[in-house]
Computed example of a mutant assay.
Amino acid sequence: MSSPPRAMPVNQLIRVNILRVAFVLTLPLTICAVSPWSGPLREIMDVVGIGLVVAAVLGRFWSILYIGGHKNVTVMQDGPYSICRHPLYLFSTIGVLGFGLMLGSVVMTLLLGGLTLAVLSITARKEEAFLRGKFGLTYDAYAVRVPMIVPRLSGFKTEATLTISVPHLRHNLMDALVFLTFIPLARLLEHVQAVKVLPGFPIW
């Protein structure tokens, strides 16, 4: 009898394209949404949003320090990978939540963050089908101990030394810096709403 076909690594380009399409579909709502909040509360939302975007960049950078050069080669279980199995997806979601807060809308924050988390969760499950097939009981034990995306900080551990892949680090740094474009983009959208180029409506 022939053996069943082995699961293949997930094509990450598909994930990226799905997120791009989702962003384009929500763009009209994002452009026309006017923040109903003002004063100190609006400023706090903005500051927290910027903080989350910066945390996303640093978190993705931190994650690639560990996984760069080791992806699909070994089951990484240290550093950010000791608190959740997909920290890159965790920090990506955090960055999108920050963008929503900078827009000044709780609804947009939950919508954009929830949509991102849903797409990345589906991708994570597909990735894990491959990882379970390749690493077997080792990955099963890891999955039992460490949550998928929502982190468990009490599980943090790391070795004293770390082998870093500079090419992977450089590539991910560019990917992570893309999240910083959320800050000027939010400012641009705020300006568009202020000059009333397009009809706007409040979204809480």
Score class of each variant (00 low, 15 high):
Gly39Tyr: 14
Val10Ala: 05
Asp46Met: 06
Tyr81Gly: 09
Leu185Trp: 01
Thr161Gly: 05
Val10Tyr: 14
Asn72Ser: 12
Phe61Glu: 09
Lys126Val: 04
Val144Pro: 00
Val119Ile: 15
Ala56His: 05
His171Arg: 09
Val47Gly: 11
Gly114Cys: 07
Phe135Pro: 06
Phe130Ile: 00
Val10Phe: 15
Lys126Asn: 04
Ala7Thr: 01
Leu13Asp: 11
Gly104Ala: 14
Pro184Ala: 08
Val96His: 05
Glu43Ile: 06
Arg42Ala: 12
Leu180Pro: 10
Arg42His: 08
Pro28Cys: 05
His86Cys: 15
Ala22Pro: 11
Leu137Ser: 02
His86Lys: 13
Gly51Ala: 00
Tyr66Phe: 04
Ile50Asn: 07
Gln77Cys: 03
Gly98Gln: 06
Thr163Ser: 07
Ser3Asn: 01
Ser92Lys: 01
Cys84Phe: 13
Val57Ala: 00
Ile94Gln: 05
Leu173Thr: 10
Gly69Ala: 09
Ser105Phe: 09
Arg85Val: 06
Val195Trp: 08
Gly95Glu: 05
Leu153Met: 11
Ile183Gln: 12
Ser105Thr: 02
Thr93Gly: 03
Ala124Lys: 07
Met1Ala: 13
Ile164Phe: 14
Gly200Gln: 08
Val178His: 09
Pro202Lys: 10
Thr116Cys: 09
Leu52Ser: 05
Ala186Leu: 06
Leu153Arg: 06
Gly114Asp: 08
Gly114Ile: 00
Leu90Lys: 12
Phe156Ile: 02
Phe99Ile: 03
Met102Asp: 08
Met148Gly: 15
Phe179Ala: 15
Ser121Gln: 06
Val57Pro: 04
Asp140Tyr: 06
Val106Gly: 12
His168Cys: 07
Val16Ser: 10
Arg145Val: 13
Phe201Gly: 01
Leu65Ser: 01
Pro5Lys: 13
Cys84Gln: 12
Ile149Ala: 04
Thr161Arg: 05
Leu97Pro: 04
Glu128Gln: 13
His70Leu: 07
Met8Ala: 10
Val197Glu: 12
Met102Trp: 14
Val75Ser: 11
Met1Asn: 07
Gly39Ile: 14
Asp46Ile: 04
Leu19Glu: 10
Asp46Leu: 01
Lys134Cys: 13
Thr163Gly: 00
Leu13Arg: 11
Leu29Ile: 02
Glu190Lys: 11
Val47Arg: 13
Gly51Val: 00
Pro199Asn: 12
Gly79Asp: 11
Phe61Pro: 04
Val54Trp: 02
Trp62Ala: 03
Leu25Cys: 13
Asn72Arg: 09
Tyr81Glu: 05
Pro80Asn: 04
Met108Asp: 02
Phe182Trp: 10
Ala118Met: 02
Leu19Arg: 04
Asp46Lys: 08
Arg85Leu: 08
Met102Ile: 00
Ile83Ser: 04
Glu159Thr: 12
Glu127Leu: 03
Val48Lys: 00
Ser165Glu: 07
Met76Ser: 12
Val150Arg: 05
Thr109His: 06
His191Leu: 12
Tyr81Asp: 03
Asp140Thr: 15
Thr138Phe: 06
Leu137Tyr: 02
Leu137Gln: 05
Pro4Thr: 07
Leu90Arg: 11
